[in-house]
Design a protein around this nucleic acid. Structure first.
Lengths: 118, 118
DNA sequence: AGAACATATACCCATATAGGAATATGTCAA
DNA sequence: TTGACATATTCCTATATGGGTATATGTTCT
């Protein structure tokens, strides 16, 4: 079997740096394809192809405006990624480190009580 | 050019569902390869290969223990993903929706004041 | 040393790329 | 209608993949 399709889910779609860049640009507001082409410094077909992938996983929506196609981000589709990564946040978050120390202290105190009971 | 290597960064490494599953399992505590093999119901070589990818992007660390190799998660490497996704959180978060409505209300009131000034 | 166990690596293959180039489709303007 | 503009699609190619299978490496036990 080969690697999963880029259109399989948001995880795969977003693995490509260009596509993340596109989403970053669209985060500032909707944009027509040509603006993206200029901002990315990428050939137009490549941009259209990236946009297709993003569309297929629901990360962007399109709107027709004259002969332009205006794209906008739909961050909702990123929620699964956010939810998954969040479970590992304690690995680096200062906040959780403090929580850990509090729990450790509670445990210490608990042990102390036990010792007193003996 | 082909797709970026799975070892290019955490984004690519984590695009594979099996590898996310491995990280989920390791989140509960370090595990030797064979335990992962059983828990995943996958062949041992495939697991070792997935672990290699995770190692190369720093998502897991290994420790030798007798003839076993015990893997543990290193969530730190997920921070870039967390940071990137966080910028889009307002797209789905209830919290931000309420913030939006508050801002909308403020704007309304401001407009009302302007009308009163005229 | 030899066997059993634990893990990693090598090799094969079908598949999906990402970018380049050419072209098709669709819309507006004269 | 014809041409210019905006975007999408098609075709090409080199490349990396994930699983299957066989095998190599390394460790412990007898």
């Amino acid at each position: 079997m080969a690697r999963a399709a880029t259109t399989a889910d948001a995880f795969n779609a977003v693995a490509e740096p260009r596509r993340r860049q596109i989403l970053d640009l669209l985060a500032g507001g909707e944009l027509p394809v040509n603006d993206l082409v200029e901002l990315l410094g990428l050939a137009q077909p490549q941009v259209s192809k990236h946009l297709r992938v993003l569309r297929e996983v629901g990360l962007v929506d399109v709107r027709d405006e004259g002969r332009q196609r205006v794209y906008r981000v739909n961050g909702q589709s990123l929620k699964p990624i956010h939810d998954w990564v969040k479970n590992f946040e304690q690995s680096w978050s200062q906040r959780f480190e403090r929580l850990d120390s509090v729990l450790a202290e509670l445990k210490e105190r608990e042990l102390g009580d036990e010792r007193n009971d003996e």
